[in-house]
Write a protein that binds this DNA or RNA. Structure first.
Lengths: 357, 357
DNA sequence: TTGACTTCCGAAACCGATTTTGTAAACTAA
DNA sequence: TTAGTTTACAAAATCGGTTTCGGAAGTCAA
């Protein structure tokens, strides 16, 4: 009644009905050359025996896994990237409806990331990849294109014409961000950016610069710092910017994690965030609503992005030309309480800070 | 030189060397009945052709997937559970070294959770499961034991004798928590718990109650509330407790998410957390260090728990008796700044709150 | 009645590995 | 020298599906 390994096989079903196993397979795959009677009997037996086809066996013959892969880079001992967590959550939820599964792997260096992709391809564990946090020149993309292996990127690169991607309009968003800050009355605006090889970090920095230019404000290199995308990075970035002779009254941060760290430092130094110092983040993480004061941020809904990208990848796997699946989304400013008109001039700010050192 | 589907198969290697494919397989699986010369030639060819065995084909024959599964429950539109994110991160990191992969799936109801486990077993996509957030009577455990399918639980149930689990000593931890609060001078201590069907929520509640009893404080049912394990739940729980005629001066929360929400409400009501009101969480989430004030919490390192549990599961899959793999860990109190001696009596607190309603 | 078409399904090949079985050649022992 | 063992590998079976091929039975037109 059951296969030697305990579970019901197609052979069991076929024997139970008295047909060839090929016939069972054809019924299950909706072939039309099966009489209604036979179909009924087979379907009944499938239900009765609780038969599910083995995806392993099916994959072997069809060459498809019905599994998508994601390789998440991990650094040192630090915790999970909250943005990626939301993103993965969104992918998994979408896949549930699409009858696919998600394989999550980690890798601790750029080299290891590449090797992991290679291993998953060679071992045929996945049909395609979702890439996150694309770099300006992304070796993963070169590799996967060379292999002609399906993938969709979350984020673009310096030349995004030939592959499928979903991205937010980072530059426009940060131009708006600066405009918003200038509208509030800020003239000295600091920027806490991310590693320069990350594409979105560059685009947001460009947006910051162009926004300043639009407002007729002269760029000042010392107002731009670059940090790892963690709370600690935010602390350090804010520390540097506030140590300037004339510190900025507003801090535009490239992610929420950075912004939360920056907020922390500001409070530690006795500044009222949203008054003495304005801080704006980017990601729209749920936790941002629960820090003090609640973080004003650009929201891109990591979760729905995950779902959207999963669907794009399935299209690409099924043969859609990747170059036709490219989508630019907008990020919305979610105003909470960490921004406001500057309560102090940069000079007053500097004086207040000197007292607390 | 390469199989019809693009990748190198064992047949390609065999032909290249001029041996039977079974011989190649034996070399790769370290059989001893192969001459040194042949072994060398085959190994060289494997390297030259860049051959990796197809895990699909291998699985079919061996009946093993080298993949572990986790089904994460998701509710409504809410974001990812930050504890689970850390936990999954830990699992994935550990598996990287163990040459296994992790399949992450979501399910949106208890019924769906069960069905998903069933599907993954029947389709033979995983070798075992990791269960999280065990319930007092957990249907997943009944189901998997009935199926004789390997799993390890993070958390116990009302009868944890017969399966493998890793858990923290929830009750002892919360007894310590109460002791700590009493030591600070608190006499009126509120408890924000989680859904009563979650085992850890019950154990922590029992710890809370026993801790009070040890301190000779009479239990008061109105000081215990039950909420969903989200920031919103924390907000609502704190709202209820602070609305009491004589509100508690300390809030013991069953998770960090709840504690962060509770902190939020307290600040909104004008209370100084760590002075007027003490709040303690549980999970040791990284973000806890970045809220204001930094959250005092019991830390259980979700990440290392994930790694440990992955290793346990592999042992169970390989035949270890599950009942012999049970591990009780301790949680450490990480003192940050959300706790302290009560600056106000409950009466003063109530008065202060009346002003801000 | 016969040849041409459908309809429906059994039989067998196939996917790419692992494992079992069998055997020629070399080696050992008597 | 001969029988018995090893050694080292080829050949074939197998895992559980999907897909191709082909043929029996029934239908239809001439």
């Amino acid at each position: 009644m059951a296969g030697s390994r305990g579970s019901v096989t197609i052979e069991d079903v076929a024997r139970h009905v008295g047909v060839a196993k090929g016939t069972v397979s054809r019924v299950l795959n909706n072939y039309t050359d099966i009489s209604a009677g036979t179909r009924e009997r087979i379907l009944a037996a499938v239900k009765e025996l609780g038969y599910y086809p083995s995806s392993t066996a099916r994959s072997l013959k069809r060459g498809r896994q019905d599994t998508l892969g994601i390789v998440v880079p991990v650094g040192g001992g630090r915790g999970a990237d909250p943005f990626l967590s939301e993103f993965i959550d969104g992918i998994a939820r979408a896949l549930d409806e699409l009858d696919r599964d998600l394989l999550v792997t980690t890798a601790n260096s750029a080299q290891h990331v590449l090797e992991t992709h290679e291993r998953l391809i060679a071992r045929r564990k996945v049909d395609g990849f979702i890439l996150t946090r694309t770099e300006v020149n992304d070796p993963r993309i070169d590799f996967l294109q060379l292999r002609r292996f399906p993938f969709v990127a979350h984020g673009r690169t310096s030349d995004p014409r030939s592959f499928a991607w979903l991205d937010v309009d980072n530059e426009a968003t940060f131009i708006n961000g600066v405009e918003h800050l200038v509208g509030l009355g800020h003239q000295r605006i600091g920027f806490i950016g991310g590693p320069g090889d990350l594409n979105f970090a560059c685009q947001r920095r460009d947006g910051y610069r162009n926004g300043l230019q639009n407002a007729g404000i002269i760029l000042e290199p010392s107002l731009e710092v670059e940090q790892a995308l963690t709370e600690e990075g935010g602390v350090e970035g804010a520390r540097q910017l506030l140590a300037l002779e004339t510190p900025p009254t507003a801090l535009l941060c490239v992610t929420d994690a950075l912004a939360i760290g920056a907020m922390r430092l500001c409070r530690d130094r006795g500044l009222r965030v949203g008054e003495d110092v304005t801080i704006i983040g980017y990601d729209g993480l749920p936790v941002g609503a629960y820090v003090e004061p609640p973080l004003t941020t650009f929201s891109q809904s990591a979760q729905s992005a995950g779902g959207k990208i999963a669907r794009m990848l399935i299209d690409v796997i099924e043969g859609t030309d990747p170059a036709t699946r490219q989508e630019l989304a907008q990020a919305d400013l979610v105003r909470r309480s960490s921004d406001g008109p500057p309560a102090k001039t940069p000079q007053e700010l500097a004086k207040a800070l000197r007292k607390t050192v």
